[in-house]
Structures are given as structure tokens and as C-alpha cells.
Design a protein around this nucleic acid. Structure first.
Lengths: 225, 225
DNA sequence: GTAGGCTCATCTGTCGGCAATATTCACACA
DNA sequence: TGTGTGAATATTGCCGACAGATGAGCCTAC
């Protein structure tokens, strides 16, 4: 039994998150934690009962998850957890690489002038790696990339990049495919340096770095096709 | 007063489109036709009453439109038609260019082997241009690009590209910004030739072609910032 | 034994209503 | 005249219920 976070106890939060957001959060955590297995059906009304809410906000939350391709829905048949694997990575990462290549080009001037945010993330990632704190590694690794995309100052680019669900998929790939994030910290430092020095090949460097994630996943999991 | 397409008269269509799809279609057309002006509020219940449906499917349709960035929603305040302009084009097209660059690289072998679908679109575009049929020009112009993305055989790439709402935004840019699609047919023919001949620079060519749309929009509308 | 049809349980898609929230406007007050 | 206050209204967010679609199981005819 999963409960919604009890917000009523916290009247300080003036603008309470909409219910559907909380539900989406619960569902994502459920997927990450293996509460629902791949291929398993997610029944709207059952989730609703479980969370003591109505069907409507659950539906909306499910639609968002569909946008992230975490579930698949068939009209009149409902939603199932997607069975994802290396193949999904192989499809997602080239797209990410292409987007971040664009981002790097757009963001280069801004980041050359002020790479401090990147440096902060690199530092945090190194610390987390030293501590062996995996979830912090994921967080700062993703944040590093997000900083670059944000610095491109293109809301469509950011929106599109976000819609890939990078954080969730990274977590999934670590959990389900035993992907390792090992030596990524070094890459990040090198990329940051390239930005700082205005190296024109930084875009390609970043793109290659992203594609490397796939290689790592493929290698650690075995190429299944 | 706008009506939903009367499907009950057509029992041949076995799997009727979900209501929300029909509503989305009506809303998109309303936006394209100027039924709703930029900045104007879209009130869920008003639309619902008008289409003789309930609030629920309208909400879902609106969320999809939000994904296409055609409207903006603020929690507890509702949806407004986005006021879009050249600035939006300037943000969308670099992203599109980046995605299609990836698509071209992935699709190159397949399209070199069989460029017939591209050729068909080029032909249709030329015909439409000759006839001066603008909406057909838009359709085939967009289809040409979609064919390339499809040929990349990467569902995430296709999904991401689709989420940019290329067709709608192209139509909008023609309608609201008086963007011209003039000599695009020639570009398309050249790109097709490059694919057929396995020209390795086809990706860059396609990317430049897409970015050219922005140039055209900027020029025809005047740079507003 | 099996193909086709019927019944029934389950679940989605949709509905109309209610409570919570935002906005507007009138009005009192400084 | 400018400003805070509160009622009135408009609209979203959510709820509980129902109609129609889907799939499983059983039953019958061959």
C-alpha cells in the first residue's frame, strides 16, 4: 500500500502541487522501484482506490507517463508498463546526442563566459562517485547535461530534451541493465574544460559522450540484436 | 458554432476515434483558422458545451495541445492560446534541424537503396506548387521530411519529431507570418538526389535546408528582436 | 473435439455535479 | 484620490456513477 505524501500537515506550502502531479510522482517511483513489473497492466481504478483518489487525476498522470514512453496505452484496453531494454537505449541516446549537439553550439558562448554551474556539477559528481552514492551520481550526471541544455536558452530545445525523460531513463538503465556510470566524471570535466576554452569541437565531444552511454549499456548487458 | 464530425452516420468505421481525438482536431482547426485569437482564454466548459460533450475529454485534448506548445496552461487558471511569432520559429527550427540531421545519418543507407517515397513526395510538391495549392504544398513538404524521419527507423526519434507539431507550426507560420514556401521544391529534389547517390553531406544539407525556413520567416516578417 | 456464439465480469471513456480556487467588482476607509 | 476588504462570480480540479468496449469462460451444434 502506497500513500500520497501527507501535505495537509504542511500549511506553509501555499501553492500545493496539483493532485495529478503527486500521483505521477508515485507512479514513477513505483516503476523505478519495480512496484510494477514490465508488461504488467496498470488499472486506472485500482490505482485510484489505492491512493484514495478518483479515476480522473490518475488518467491524467498516466497520459504524462505515456508521453515519456514509460507505459503504452491502447484505446479501451488500458495501460501496460513498457518492457524496455537495450533497444530503447539504442533509440533514445542518438536523439539525445543530436539535441545536445545543438545545445552545445547554442550554449557555447554563454558557457565560455561562465562555466561555473558546470564546474559545480562536475565537483558534485566527483564527490558522489567517491562516496559511491549511486542516486546522487545519477542526479548530478543528469543535471550537468541539463545545465548545458538550459544554457542554450531555447525553450523548445529544453522542453524536447525534458520530454525524453533523461533522469528516469538513466535511473532505469542503471537499475535494469546494470549500466555503470563509472568514468563519466572524467568526461564531464573534460567537456567543461572545452567549454571554458571555447573549443569548437565541444559539440562533437558532448555528442560522443552521450552516445558512449549506449556503448556502456550494450557492453554491460550484451548486444541482444 | 462548431460541430463534431457526425460519425454515427458512418457505421463503416469500426473503431471510432476516441472522442478526445475528435476534439483535439476541432481545437487545432480552430486555432489554425483563427477561431481563437492568440492570448485568448480557452474555457474548458464552454468548449464542452459548444461541442455537446463533457469537460473530461476536452481537458485531455487541451493537455495534448499543451504538449505541442499551442496553448499555455497555468494550474487553477486555465488555458490560453499562445501568442507565437518569429521567436517561436527561431526556437523550433534549430531543434528540428538537429533531429533531422540525426535522422538523415540513420536513414541514409535505407534511402540510398530506395528513395522512391521521397521522389513521390517531391513530385507531389512540385505539382501542388504549380497549381498554387498552398495546403497541399504544406502537406507534401511536411510529408517529405516525415518520410526521412520514418526511414531512420527509430521510434523515439519519430515520436520526438512528431511532438514538435511540424505540420501545425508550418501551417501557422504560413498563415500568421506570411512565410513563403516558394523554392522549397528545388531543395527537396536536391536532397533526394543526394540521398540516392549516398552523398555523405546530405545530413548537413538537410539541416541547412530546415534552418532556411527560419531565415525565410525572419526575412518575410522582419526581425522583431 | 472444435468452431462459433452467448453471457458475464472487468475496465476504459465519458458524464454531470460539487468543492476549492482565482478574479472581478463594489464599497468602505484613509 | 488611492487602497484595502469582502462578497459575488467564473472556472478549474476532482469526484462518483454509468454506458460501451473488451476478453474470458461456458455452452451448443456440428
Amino acid at each position: 500500500m502506497v500513500d500520497l505524501p501527507q501535505l495537509p500537515d504542511d500549511p506553509s506550502k501555499l501553492a500545493r502541487e496539483p493532485l495529478r502531479e503527486q500521483i505521477r510522482q508515485v507512479l514513477v517511483e513505483g516503476l523505478l522501484s519495480g512496484r510494477w513489473q514490465p508488461g504488467e497492466r496498470i488499472v486506472e481504478r485500482r490505482v485510484a482506490t489505492e491512493l484514495k483518489v478518483s479515476q480522473a487525476p490518475v488518467r491524467e498522470a498516466l497520459r504524462e507517463l505515456e508521453g515519456l514512453r514509460l507505459i503504452e496505452t491502447v484505446p479501451n484496453k488500458g495501460a501496460r508498463v513498457r518492457a524496455f531494454g537495450v533497444q530503447d537505449m539504442a533509440e533514445i541516446y542518438p536523439v539525445r546526442a543530436g539535441l545536445e549537439l545543438v545545445a552545445a553550439q547554442l550554449a557555447a558562448p554563454r558557457l565560455a563566459a561562465d562555466p561555473s554551474r558546470l564546474e559545480r556539477e562536475v565537483e558534485a559528481l566527483q564527490e558522489a562517485t567517491a562516496r559511491g552514492d549511486v542516486s546522487e551520481q545519477i542526479r548530478h550526471s543528469v543535471e550537468f547535461h541539463r545545465e548545458i541544455v538550459c544554457a542554450a536558452d531555447n525553450s523548445v530545445l529544453l522542453h524536447t530534451w525534458e520530454s525524453l525523460g533523461v533522469e528516469v531513463w538513466t535511473a532505469l538503465s542503471v537499475r535494469w541493465l546494470n549500466m555503470e556510470l563509472h568514468a563519466k566524471a572524467a568526461d564531464h570535466a573534460q567537456i567543461t574544460r572545452a567549454f571554458r576554452e571555447g573549443d569548437p569541437s565541444v559539440g562533437q565531444m558532448l555528442s560522443d559522450h552521450v552516445l558512449n552511454y549506449v556503448e556502456a549499456a550494450m557492453k554491460s548487458h550484451g548486444v541482444t540484436r
